[in-house]
C-alpha cells in the first residue's frame, strides 16, 4: 500500500503556498519584470513617458569599449574575493575545530564582521588603507609613493577585495565550522589511531567530508561577490581611480541611482543576471558532480 500524505481539499495546498508565492512574486518576479520592460525602453525617470527601443540599450552596453573591461574586473574581483574569503575562513574553521585554547572566545568574535554593514566596513577600511593617514602609511615612509590606492588601480582593487573578503570570512566561517563539527568524531579519532597526523587527517578525512558545505559556499560567494559589492566600492573608491574598481554592479548602481539612466541600468542588470545564472549553472553542472554527499 502506498503511504503518502495527500491533501483531500483542492484549494488548501494552494492556500498554503499562496503567501510564499505572493512574496516571491512581489519581491522577485515583479521587479525583474519591470527591469525587463525598462531594458527594452527608454524610461524618463520622473515618469514622463517611455519609448520602446528594442535592443538599443543592450547595443549601447555592449558597444561601450570599456564595458568588457568592467566585466573582466568583476570576474577578477569575484574570483579573488571568493578565494580569499573561503581560504581564510577554512583555515580559521580548522583551527577552531581543533579546540585550541581560547577557541570559544575566538569563535564568538570571528562571527562579528558579518554583522557590520558594508558602508561601515568600507569606511573603516578606507581609514586603514588611506595612503597618508592610514595604518599602511608607514610604507610611504620607507619608500615614498609605494602605497597609494587613490592613484594606483591595482592597489585600489586590492583594498576592495580585502574589505569585501573580511566581511565574508565570518559568514563562511560559520558554515565551515558547522560542517566540520558535523563530521563524526569517531572518523577523525580512527585516523589518529592509525597514525595520521593533523594535516593528514585534514586532507584525507575532514576536507573530503566538507565538500557539500564547500560547494554551497562557493556558489553563494561567487554570486554575492558579483551583486553585493557596490556598497563597499561606493564608500572606498567610488569606482576609481580611473575606473580601476568600476565593477559591473557598481556601474549599474551609479548609472541607475545616481545618473537616473533607468533603462541603461536595467539592461546592464539583465546582462549581470544572465552572467550569474550561467555561472551558477556551470557550477552545478560540472562541479557538483564531483561533490560526494554523505
Amino acid at each position: 500500500m502506498e503511504r503518502r500524505a495527500v491533501f483531500k481539499s483542492r484549494w488548501l495546498p494552494y492556500a498554503l503556498i499562496a503567501p510564499q508565492v505572493l512574496l516571491v512574486f512581489t519581491f522577485f518576479y515583479w521587479p525583474t519584470g519591470a527591469a525587463l520592460v525598462w531594458a527594452f525602453t527608454l524610461e524618463q525617470p520622473w515618469g514622463g513617458g517611455s519609448a520602446f527601443v528594442g535592443f538599443d540599450n543592450f547595443a549601447a552596453v555592449f558597444g561601450d569599449p570599456l564595458y568588457w573591461a568592467s566585466v573582466g574586473r568583476s570576474v577578477f574581483f569575484a574570483a579573488s574575493a571568493t578565494t580569499l574569503a573561503m581560504g581564510v575562513a577554512l583555515l580559521l574553521a580548522l583551527f577552531t575545530d581543533r579546540q585550541l585554547s581560547g577557541y570559544r572566545a575566538y569563535r564568538f568574535v570571528t562571527i562579528w564582521p558579518y554583522a557590520v554593514a558594508a558602508p561601515a566596513a568600507g569606511l573603516a577600511f578606507r581609514f586603514i588603507f588611506a595612503s597618508e593617514a592610514g595604518i599602511l602609511a608607514f610604507l610611504n615612509q620607507i619608500s615614498p609613493g609605494l602605497w597609494n590606492p587613490s592613484m594606483n588601480g591595482n592597489q585600489a582593487m586590492l583594498t576592495i577585495v580585502v574589505c569585501y573578503s573580511w566581511k565574508y570570512v565570518s559568514y563562511n566561517f560559520i558554515f565551515l565550522l558547522a560542517g566540520l563539527q558535523a563530521i563524526p568524531r569517531a572518523l577523525v579519532e580512527a585516523g589518529a589511531m592509525d597514525g595520521a597526523g593533523v594535516l593528514r587527517r585534514m586532507r584525507d578525512i575532514q576536507l573530503p567530508l566538507l565538500q557539500p558545505t564547500f560547494f554551497f559556499l562557493l556558489v553563494i560567494n561567487l554570486t554575492e561577490s558579483f551583486v553585493d559589492s557596490f556598497g563597499i566600492v561606493d564608500i572606498m573608491t567610488g569606482g576609481g581611480p580611473a575606473k580601476a574598481t568600476n565593477l559591473m554592479v557598481y556601474k549599474i548602481y551609479f548609472d541607475g541611482f545616481k545618473g537616473l539612466d533607468y533603462s541603461g541600468a536595467a539592461a546592464q542588470s539583465i546582462v549581470l543576471m544572465v552572467l550569474v545564472m550561467a555561472l551558477t549553472f556551470v557550477q552545478f553542472r560540472f562541479i557538483e558532480r564531483r561533490v560526494h554527499y554523505r
Binding site: 580611473a242 551609479f254 545616481k258 545618473g259 539612466d261
Partner: peptide
C-alpha cells in the same frame, strides 16, 4: 543631461592623467 555621469567621466580622466595612464 546625465551630468553626474559626465562629472564622473571627467574625474576618471583626471585620475588617469595624474597617474600617467
Amino acid at each position: 543631461g546625465g551630468f553626474l555621469q559626465i562629472r564622473k567621466e571627467v574625474t576618471d580622466a583626471l585620475e588617469a592623467i595624474f597617474s600617467d595612464k
